[in-house]
Amino acid sequence: MELIGLINYWIVIVLMMTGFYIVIAHDNLVKKIVGLNIFQVSVFVFYITMAKVKGGTAPILAEGITTYSNPLPHVLILTAIVVGVATTALGLALVVRIRDAYGTIEDDDFENQDGEP
């Protein structure tokens, strides 16, 4: 029961580790950005999960409803999503310019071309 009840948190951990692994292990710059996105999404899920109150509904005043989920983490994570989008856009823009300058987006090739560590 414990396992089922915490299923969201398990998903968070799995997503987080998957994303983190992709960022570290892949040399392709676009794949790294994808990994970074998965990593960030896990945090979004984490925030949304912790805001859930059992039996609670959306925080809108209505008759007969007394339990509401906490809206604050949703607001916070909206901000974080915007930041994530900006980061992804900037990262991809950099990848485009790197490809223009080096003709490759594999992380290993830059040092060889510049001839120093």
């Binding site: 710059l29 970074l36 900037l90 990262g91 950099l94 310019r97 790197i98 830059f110």
Partner: peptide, 11 residues
């Protein structure tokens, strides 16, 4: 080289 440096810093 600044492009690659900026990218790594971003990650």
């Amino acid at each position: 080289r600044a492009l690659v440096a900026a990218y790594r810093y971003l990650i």
